[in-house]
């Protein structure tokens, strides 16, 4: 057991290390931008005197390493600093947006994961039949189109033609949950179409491998029905690969939603990132990038831990 704990702690440590490296990269890349924050705030109205004063005020005269450590220290206490454009606290700006993004990702996950795993199981069981072929063609077609195309396609059908769902998804902190669900449905469906193929293919491939193994034949020879063979005997052994690809896709739904959020005018992190980039609000960009990176690292970490815990060979060391 302690060996497993060791492995998990090692993974956590590596995750934190990666995060540290990413934070340094994010910080450094902004440092390398031409000009500095003070020049950007003042823009056309900059004079050497005002620049010097502002640099003094923002602490830009201290060495980069010191500023990086101060920035990191602030983040650890939940303080991302202030926006260069409107001086608002970034933490406050992020809070709402992150909440919206997570809500969208969660909703898409709840639709996409059961759908993808279910389709994957179905395709594996009916492999090389027309059901399998249609599942593959359908999901692969969905993933082959650019995201904005899928999004506009859905808007065209469900908003413009059928009029069932709104084409823009403006939610606020005071939107009721029921309204929020309706407003978020189209972006969530778009994300679903984009991520389902990966997870479906992985489920299908893992399961087809497993179904050919002697212990699955043994389960059939013991008299297990199809459902039991799949759910009890095959799936538990496919957890590791499936969870890994699910984690990647969830992380993608958080960090990769930029285009979908823009199309639906959904007030999430992705849109914030786009806005901040166009306004050159570097401190907000830094913060958003760091959050996206954290999401990737966190979900992969969780997937690693689940993989370890799902492997009896690791969990129960040999006592031979």
């Amino acid at each position: 057991m302690s060996a497993v704990l060791n492995m998990i702690l090692q993974r956590v440590f590596l995750g934190l290390l990666t995060l540290l490296v990413v934070s340094a990269l994010v910080f450094v890349s902004v440092e390398f931008l031409p000009g500095d924050v003070a020049e950007q705030i003042l823009g056309q109205s900059a004079t050497p005197e005002t620049l010097a004063a502002l640099r003094e005020q923002l602490g830009l005269n201290t060495p980069p390493v010191q500023r990086y450590l101060a920035w990191l220290g602030g983040i650890l206490q939940g303080d991302f600093g202030r926006s260069v454009i409107n001086q608002r606290e970034i933490t406050a700006i992020l809070a709402d947006r992150l909440g919206n993004t997570l809500f969208l990702a969660a909703m898409a996950t709840l639709i996409a994961v059961p759908l993808a795993v279910g389709l994957g199981i179905l395709a594996a069981l009916k492999r090389n039949t027309w059901i399998d072929r249609w599942i593959n063609i359908g999901t692969l077609t969905a993933i082959s189109f650019p995201e904005f195309f899928v999004a506009y396609g859905l808007i065209y059908v469900f908003s413009a033609k059928l009029g069932w769902l709104p084409s823009i998804s403006v939610v606020g902190s005071d939107t009721a949950l029921s309204d929020r669900l309706v407003l978020t449905l189209l972006p969530a469906l778009t994300l679903t179409l984009i991520v389902t193929a990966h997870m479906m293919r992985m489920t299908r491939a893992s399961l087809i491998n497993l179904l050919a193994l002697p212990y699955v034949e043994m389960a059939r020879l013991k008299g297990a029905a199809q459902r039991r063979v799949v759910v009890v005997h095959a799936l538990p052994n496919a957890v590791a690969p499936i969870v890994n690809v699910i984690a990647l896709n969830i992380a993608y739904m958080i960090a990769g939603v930029v285009i979908v959020e823009v199309v639906f005018v959904y007030p999430g992190l992705g849109q914030l990132l786009v806005d901040s980039v166009s306004k050159r609000d570097v401190t907000v960009v830094q913060a958003a990038c760091l959050i996206f990176a954290s999401a990737f690292i966190l979900f992969n970490l969780v997937a690693d831990v689940i993989s370890i815990l799902s492997n009896p060979r690791l969990l129960h060391r040999s006592t031979k």
Partner: peptide, 21 residues
């Protein structure tokens, strides 16, 4: 299926591969 295990059972060549890990 109903006959298997209860009336007819099977012992495979490789027990290591035929037990669910």
């Amino acid at each position: 299926r109903g006959l298997r295990s209860t009336r007819i059972a099977y012992v495979a060549q490789s027990a290591a591969a035929s037990f669910n890990p």
